[in-house]
Computed example of a mutant assay.
Amino acid sequence: MARILITGSADGLGRAAAQTLLDEGHDVVLHARNRERLTAVRALLDRGAAAVAGDLADVAQTRDVAEQVNALGTMDAVIHNAGVYTGARILPVNVVAPYLLTALVRRPARLIYLSSGMHHGGRPSLRGLDWTGRRVTASYSDSKLFLTAFAAAVARLWPGVYVNSVDPGWVPTKMGGPGAPDDLRLGHRTQEWLATSDDARTTGGYWYHQQQREPHPATQDEHFQDELLAELEKFTGTSL
C-alpha cells in the first residue's frame, strides 16, 4: 500500500481522491489551508488519515507544509491538487506552491499535478508576472499552462520519478459549479491510478480520464520550461 499526500484535500476532487484511496487501504496525508479547515475531513482523520496544514498562497507557510510532510516520512506519491480559479492567489497557489513543495518535500516515486483543459487557452509568456499574488497578472488558464510545463520539466529532469499532469475535466465541485457536465468519479480516478497502479509506471504524460492527450505545445518546449524554472527559483530562492 502507498503513502500519498494530496494537497487541497479538505473538499472537492482532493477529498474525493482521499476517500477512495483510504477505501483501497492506502495511507493518506490530507492537506488543508488551516487547522480549522480540517474539521471538514474529521471522518477521514478518524479512519487513520494524517494531516498537514498551511496556506499555499504564503511562501513561508508552504515551506512549513513541506517540513510537516517530511516529518511524517517519505511519501510514495504526491498529488498536487490544490488550486484556485480567480483572484490574486492564482500564481502563488497554482504554480509557486507546487514548485516549492516539489523542491522541498522528500522526493517521492510519483508526482501528479492537476492541470486543466483550460491550459490550452493560456499564454506562454512570463513577462510582467507578480508571483507574490499582490496583483492579478495571470489568468487561471495561464497558471495551468505554467503548471503543465513545470510537470513536463520535472519529468525531464528527474527520470527516476514518474511525473504526470492530469486534466480532471469540468466536474461538479465547488470550483466547477453544480452544472458542470463531466463525471465527478472520473474526475479523480486518473490521479488515483497514476499514484498507485502498477499499470501507471509512466512519465511525462498529460492525461484525461486515463487516456493520454496532447497538451499545449509550449508546455513541451524545453527552453520555455527552463525559463519558468529560472523565474520560480529566482522568486523563491529555492532550486529544484
Rank of each mutant, 00 (worst) to 15 (best):
I4G: 07
A10R: 00
A16C: 05
Q19G: 04
L21G: 08
L22Q: 08
H26D: 12
D27S: 15
D27Y: 04
V29S: 05
R37H: 13
L38Y: 02
R42V: 02
R42W: 05
A43Q: 14
A51I: 07
A51T: 03
A53Y: 02
A53K: 06
V59P: 00
V59R: 04
A60M: 08
A60Y: 12
Q61R: 13
V69M: 03
N70T: 09
A71P: 00
I79N: 01
I79E: 05
A82Y: 03
A88F: 06
A88S: 15
P92V: 10
N94E: 01
A97S: 15
L101W: 11
A103V: 13
R110N: 10
Y113L: 00
S115R: 00
S116G: 07
G122H: 04
P124V: 01
P124R: 03
L126A: 10
R127S: 13
R127T: 11
R127D: 15
D130R: 03
S139F: 09
Y140C: 07
S141T: 02
D142S: 06
L145A: 12
L147P: 12
V154L: 08
V154H: 02
R156L: 14
L157F: 12
L157Q: 15
S165H: 01
V166P: 08
G169Q: 10
G169W: 14
W170R: 05
T173Q: 01
M175P: 01
G176K: 11
A180L: 09
S197I: 12
G205S: 09
R213Q: 15
P217G: 09
Q220F: 00
H223F: 06
H223C: 02
L232P: 03
E233F: 12
E233S: 12
F235K: 01
S239I: 10
